[in-house]
Nucleic acid binder design. Structure first.
Lengths: 204, 204
DNA sequence: TCCGATCTATGACGGACGGTCTAGTTGCTT
DNA sequence: AAGCAACTAGACCGTCCGTCATAGATCGGA
């Protein structure tokens, strides 16, 4: 029997900390956010950080990536369950991101992408986490593509292109303070899906 | 008469500083690189930084973005002058980036994208610089597309999709330590170009 | 040829903040 | 009421970026 999970939880500081980390990291990047900001934003006391996350800032970032990965993954799974046509699905996913960006005045980016770009060999654990998050989302896209009747290898290629187009559109959108890049990305992805589904694939 | 430009240049510290800034920022981001690292990498003394760049770190970052923007822009212009077919051009550009990433063990990213993602309202001057750099490259892509016979609006949409696909592929490539995302992005872009050039456009 | 004047270059310094840790307090359980 | 897990406060030292007084280099004028 697991009695550990019955341990009384006296505060929800850990939850608040993760939520603040997701929010701040995806707006300013890993190095752009100090633990002091994390603590202030979450309302958690200073000492709690290393109790809940003995690994310090890096462990918080890992938790934040996992949280974001799971949440976005759930939304994608829910959308896929609707069985939408390619055009509807692609527009839906891209529009959701466009809305996310414009609603936050182009402050909210993707925590996975920015940490992937910041972290080279500096923090292998973080990079591994970004890899896992990207793969999770790609798996979702590939599953949607297979449901449309796309061949396995084509579906994987499409999934990579779709994820890349989204992440790139986020970067462009932030720089230009405009949601237009998402529309252009959607157009490209719909053309790719049409090509792959037309028959022999885009190169034939 | 401009006599200022005739002032003797006793050291090339400024050049070294910009070169080091481009190299380090694109690997670790703006906040991931300290002034001390810039100085050590360039061999310049501390005081020289604030002589050449009174605006400090932010001004160096602006200079670094401009440098990168110009260098990449020149390469793109040179490639465009070759008058390559869409497939060749797209593969060429994407392969160049793939090579850049893999040759550096996936350390070298795009200084424009990472700074665009890191900087929200924190540094408007930097964000404006990223916007300008992205627009310059988009203009290049659009010019190439027009040369293939693409209509004006289609060319602009294609250019945005191409830049976004590249920047996204860089993020994925770093996370996965693989150049595969560039190949998938290239496939998508070739499909888009084919669609746009086929006649009435991808939505007709 | 010498001499200020002006431009260029430098590294030691400081206030602030970075992430981390240890020593201590709280409150549940028995 | 004792023991232990859950939690917290404050201070730690290193690094952060930017400033400063001063040293070196170059030039125009006498």
């Amino acid at each position: 029997m697991e009695i550990l999970q019955a341990m009384p939880k006296r505060t929800d500081a850990k939850e608040h900390l993760i939520a603040a980390a997701v929010r701040l990291f995806r707006a300013h990047g890993y190095d752009g956010v100090g633990v002091a900001q994390l603590l202030e934003a979450s309302g958690a006391p200073r000492g709690s950080l290393y109790f809940h996350f003995p690994g310090g800032k890096e462990e918080i970032a890992i938790a934040a990536i996992r949280r974001a990965s799971a949440r976005v993954g759930e939304r994608l799974a829910a959308r896929r369950a609707r069985g939408e046509a390619p055009e509807v699905y692609i527009d839906g996913v891209l529009n959701a991101w466009a809305e996310e960006l414009s609603a936050s005045d182009y402050a909210n980016g993707c925590i996975v992408a920015i940490i992937a770009l910041e972290m080279g060999e500096r923090a292998p654990a973080l990079r591994e986490e970004t890899r896992a998050a990207f793969m999770k989302w790609e798996t979702e896209f590939a599953a949607a593509a297979r449901a449309w009747g796309m061949r396995e290898t084509d579906a994987e290629s499409f999934a990579s292109a779709m994820l890349g187009a989204i992440e790139g559109a986020i970067a462009l959108s932030r720089a230009k303070q405009s949601a237009a890049p998402f529309a252009h990305a959607a157009t490209a992805l719909k053309a790719l899906a049409r090509d792959y589904l037309a028959g022999s694939g885009p190169s034939g």
